[in-house]
Design a binder for these strands. Structure first.
Lengths: 336, 336
DNA sequence: TTGTACGCGTTATCAG
DNA sequence: CTGATAACGCGTACAA
């Protein structure tokens, strides 16, 4: 049996409400009562029950995070861990704890239980698109939520911080174009190329700019495969590119490594550019030009929105766009 | 105002207990009542309040995880993320959620609030050594806890899964010795070498084996620094090692890279061995021999212990040792 | 089979 | 200043 506030009251010879006042330092009580209460608390090792406080207070002081394995992020990306750390920090600074759920799959059944059972005041989704079923549970509980997503679709069923990586990739193409590059090889992330907004943006932009060189290989998120594919391409290609643009930094770095092995100088002979701005990008030799995901900004906007929403009774759906930022480093240069 | 069980009862024209029975499928109620209840639930979008259920049930169905930045692990280690994923999975399979707290610093004040306020039934620490202050809070709440730690110290104030990485490093030295190596260079993780159990184990074991070659450089957890330090060592060393043993895989892989650049063949000319068994170790060329941290085992033992402890009223302190496992791959060979 | 009433541990309101 | 007492929403004996 845990010691309750009643035990403390009895021990201190006062009433429960006096104990509450003494602990919360609200109301005015005599020094004597105050002291006796605190002594009793010490003696009995009293710690208030969090669940009971939540029940009466009407809030749990925690925020749920749903982060499934199939993100838009690479799962091996060290970003994710620092995102979690940053989330934890931001939340706890506002007095909230983090209830993290990493479902094994994306199916509704996996998440419904969590959404129903979790003692949370709000939710941050890292899922591509919250399903209507899930959103309904939140509505029943009147819980605010915000998704951190990619793309540019209007999310109608929830608030969302949305990074338009398609637009980011277009910026990347434009940047290389502005350096004079007209033959840009694209390294796609995986086999589902035609559903990858980054790929689509490359294709679109290359077309818009009227370039007739439009070549693509698939790196499958992997350094090894990128290496193999690139060396195959280099052998068979009729015209070699003057710039390589990769769907993420991992593959861009792999490409740089391959070029280095072949004695091709970056950026003098070939420019290389990535996407994400992982830590390794800045440390590479030469340092990798890339499009940075504004991770901190995304998290902060999501948290701010949730903080605000949790204060209000009515739910509104906000769209919070953020942009990928061009980070110019040493791996790209003007074509001479 | 949220819809409560009373609303459902009124809507269905039955009493609250009938509603509970219908929802929990316990007790026996008529088909008719059952149906009416469920219809009311649907109509009103009723979701039971998690906090209230916790209060009456006496359990929160969640487990706290404290994972501070200064772990024994590398923070950039992708292991950590998969550990979290595995924790989430294991916990949710048993019907528990994960309350993750990543305090910015290790000080008590940072964690006390969490320990007091978190709605959890048990706690898993990733901290090196829970402080007495913290343990006291847990005792007041009568919460079971288990720490996941390194070293071989008996933890007296809490249960602990403990991996003796010192013993693991001794095994590593022994293995290289058994291959005939007598000159083993050690790459330490950071400047605080003399407090690093892995380093100490190397020194001790080398001494025990009566080897007079005992050389060490400091890689500071970093590929770049390892490279620099190693190339410096290679130039100035009077006697070069026949084997390199690193305090973690990152640095071992960096060493392999350096050797490759210098045209030194691994393992024919020099054996290289790491510690941790990060994913990249298996993918390296040649694949890296290393001591694996039995991460899954550590997590499973911690979870099992917590699951068991949460069932019982009395708290006991168990010591759950696990061993690092030798993973022989291609980067080590017998000295010829 | 169903309804009533109490308890879970707190906080908040309102007398005293 | 302090003490009863009513919520908070649900589960569950116990009674009907």
């Amino acid at each position: 049996m845990r010691t309750t506030i009643k035990d403390v009251a009895r021990e201190a010879g006062v009433s429960v409400s006096t104990v509450t006042y003494a602990l919360k330092k609200k109301g005015k009580i005599t020094k004597a009562s105050h002291k006796r209460v605190w002594e009793a608390v010490e003696r009995l090792n009293y710690v208030p029950d969090a669940t009971a406080r939540s029940l009466v207070g009407g809030k749990t002081n925690s925020v749920g995070i749903i982060m499934p394995p199939a993100l838009g992020f690479d799962f091996s990306d060290p970003h994710i861990l620092s995102m979690l750390a940053e989330l934890s920090k931001t939340l706890s600074h506002k007095g909230y704890w983090m209830s993290l759920y990493m479902p094994e799959r994306m199916e509704d059944e996996f998440m419904r239980q969590f959404l129903m059972d979790a003692k949370i005041d709000g939710l941050i989704w890292m899922v591509q698109r919250p399903t209507d079923t899930m959103v309904r549970v939140l509505e029943c509980r009147n819980l605010p939520s915000v998704a951190i997503t990619y793309g540019k679709d209007l999310q109608l069923n929830t608030s969302a911080v949305v990074m338009d990586d398609g637009a980011g990739m277009e910026k990347a193409v434009d940047y290389l174009y502005s350096l004079g590059h007209r033959r840009i090889l694209y390294i796609a992330r995986d086999a589902e190329e035609m559903r990858d907004r980054r790929v689509l943006a490359y294709l679109q932009r290359v077309k818009d700019l009227g370039l007739d060189y439009c070549q693509m290989i698939s790196g499958h998120f992997s350094e090894k495969i990128t290496l193999a594919q690139l060396s195959w391409f280099w052998r068979v290609a009729q015209e070699r590119p003057t710039a390589i643009l990769a769907g993420n930094d991992i593959m861009a770095l792999a490409a740089m490594k391959a070029l280095a092995q072949w004695g091709i100088r970056v950026p003098d002979e070939v420019s290389v550019m990535g996407f994400d701005d992982i830590p390794a990008a800045a440390q590479a030799m030469p340092a990798l030009t890339t499009m940075a995901q504004p991770v901190s900004e995304m998290i902060n906007r999501a948290c701010d929105h949730i903080f605000e929403a949790m204060e209000q009774e009515e739910r509104t759906h906000a769209l919070l766009p953020v942009e990928a930022k061009l980070i110019v480093r040493q791996s790209t240069a003007a074509l001479n």
